[in-house]
Design a protein around this nucleic acid. Structure first.
Length: 297
DNA sequence: AGTGGGACCTGTCCGC
DNA sequence: TGCGGACAGGTCCCAC
């Protein structure tokens, strides 16, 4: 489920272990994920210090002291887990014995943490739509992954006025416009459905209709930006609380069962007060959309 | 400009 | 129980 909130939750989970850590060694178990690993991937990381772990849209970025940025994307099914040393043993390795999915463990970071302990951070990805690469820090913003990436939705700039500007004249449905990472970066199929449901806007409505002829934001534009910010912020918050539980148990990061109100609720009653509608499922540009045609206009 | 399809992969679930 | 098909949270690329 890695959309922005999940990636942010993963970042928060990994940061205490990775920030300030030295990469003792990096173990790749295969030559590629979605893309081949870059040349000399493990050599360029071995012995290096990780300075800061940050996030841009759905990308995790590890600043390496060498000047490289380690860019990581979780694709559809990527996740991390942490195994920490405890009294000279790696705590958590009992999960191997518990039939955990180790078959899709593709990258192992063997770390010495800032505090001097040993830890492993393991990347697992059954579908291998995720990837990792190294980009020189100076060239990051010009790199194709980032050059045309849109607005960070939890930043301060996203409001009705910005949306009106971004959506003006667009004849594409709201669903497609919100999934377009060149406009707003970080939303995915689930949170787009959730935000549109909260804002009571139809996913079929054309993006350009949130703007008046004079280019001013409509009330709907304001509602939508509020809905986006709220649903993401609440999901990050929920991830944070889930994270504390996971950290105590198995160290797995990345997959949390949030409860969604519209997504995957086909046939269930719409949960807006005073709405008698039913959530239905349609297909838009090849992907499922869940919405209530009764109150989402 | 926008849409629709297929591609990349594996796992799971559902109906027969 | 087995098998085929549909489907899954992301993104890119190409043809219309």
């Amino acid at each position: 489920m890695p959309e922005l909130p999940e990636v942010e939750t993963v970042r928060r989970g990994l940061a205490p272990v990775m920030e300030g850590a030295r990469i003792v060694s990096l173990e790749q178990r295969r030559p590629n994920l979605r893309f081949p690993f870059p040349d000399r991937f493990s050599e360029r990381l071995q012995g290096q210090r990780i300075e800061v772990l940050s996030r841009r849209a759905k990308y995790l970025l590890a600043d390496i002291r060498s000047g490289d940025i380690l860019v990581m994307h979780l694709g559809m099914s990527g996740s991390f887990r942490i195994l920490e040393e405890c009294d000279g043993k790696i705590a958590g390795d009992f999960y191997y014995a518990r039939n955990k999915d180790t078959h899709h463990d593709h990258v192992f970071f063997h770390l010495e943490t800032a505090g001097g302990a040993l830890a492993q951070v393991i990347y697992n990805d059954p579908r291998r739509f995720g990837f990792m690469t190294l980009i020189e820090r100076a060239g990051l913003s010009d790199h194709p992954f980032f050059a045309r990436l849109g607005l960070e939705p939890l930043g301060n700039e996203l409001d009705g006025a910005w949306l009106a500007h971004a959506f003006a004249g667009r004849k594409t449905p709201l669903k497609a416009a919100l999934l377009d990472q060149k406009l707003i970066a970080g939303l995915g199929n689930i949170y787009v459905c959730e935000a549109l449901w909260r804002a009571k806007l139809s996913p079929l409505r054309l993006a350009g209709t949130l703007v008046t002829k004079a280019g001013r934001p409509t009330a709907a534009a304001g509602r939508l930006t509020e809905a986006i910010r709220e649903v993401l912020a609440q999901a990050v918050e929920a991830g944070g609380s889930t994270l504390r539980d996971y950290m105590k148990t198995d160290g797995t990061l990345g997959y949390f069962q949030h409860s969604f109100i519209a997504y995957d609720r086909e046939g269930e009653p719409c949960r807006h007060p005073d709405c008698n509608g039913t959530i239905e499922r349609i297909t838009q540009s090849g992907r499922s959309t869940f919405y209530c045609r009764s109150c989402q206009r």
